[in-house]
């Protein structure tokens, strides 16, 4: 779970770097997508080879992550000893001692993310699902899509889910890999770093649709 999660996080950071090139204008953005990326490690790898390796690795990571999540979910539900629909009958203190909100969102947030990723990948297929109109320029397709309010809304929901997932997930992955040296969760610097990282990623990604929808970037 931790390792697959960290792989995806690494990808997200690079992905965000690419997205932010949007602000450099159509030419640089399209060049990056159409020319730079397919030629990574070229000619040691064939054109687009690196992207295919990346796709395979990410697919494996997603599958492993989902499989581990489902297994853990089922195991933990049994381990928590539910009586009927709830564990404790009391209505008091349902939110625990010090739980972060993000820790509550890991499972449903994960499902939202899975749906988001499916939609997002479909949208990336060459002119297959193109809200707002198809184009050979990815830059144009970004602009076309983000001029529609519900696309922006869905994208934002997806990215907030990413942020919440990371705020707990990054800390959790590092702890699982033995890197926490603090006596409490809240006291750990990794908790602060996780929240910071999650915020950077969410803001970084959302900045593009905001710029397009509210400030008319690219049109």
């Amino acid at each position: 779970m931790a390792v697959s999660g960290l792989i995806m996080l690494g990808y997200l950071l690079v992905h965000m770097y690419g997205n932010l090139k949007f602000f450099q204008g159509r030419e640089k953005f399209d060049h990056y997508l159409h020319e730079t990326l397919p030629h990574i490690l070229y000619p040691y790898l064939p054109e687009g080879g690196f992207l295919w390796i990346l796709r395979v690795v990410l697919t494996v990571a997603v599958v492993v992550h989902a499989y581990a999540a489902i297994t853990l979910w089922r195991r933990n539900k049994a381990a928590a000893g539910y009586v009927g629909g709830s564990r404790y009958q009391t209505k008091q203190n349902k939110t625990g001692y010090q739980r972060s909100y993000s820790s509550f969102t890991m499972r449903w947030g994960g499902i939202i993310l899975a749906l988001f990723i499916i939609g997002h990948v479909a949208q990336m297929m060459p002119n297959w699902l193109s809200p707002g109109g198809a184009s050979d320029s990815k830059y144009d397709r970004v602009v076309n899509g983000f001029e529609i309010w519900w696309v922006v809304l869905l994208y934002t929901i997806g990215l907030v889910a990413v942020g919440l997932h990371l705020a707990h997930g990054f800390w959790s992955a590092l702890t699982t890999l033995g890197q926490n040296h603090s006596s409490t969760r809240r006291g750990s610097r990794w908790t602060a770093i996780s929240i910071g990282l999650a915020t950077v990623i969410t803001v970084g990604f959302i900045s593009v649709p905001i710029a397009v929808f509210f400030f008319g970037a690219g049109s």
Partner: peptide, 9 residues
């Protein structure tokens, strides 16, 4: 027992 998800409770 369940698996740890580092919630800290």
């Amino acid at each position: 027992f369940g698996g740890c998800t580092n919630i800290g409770e």
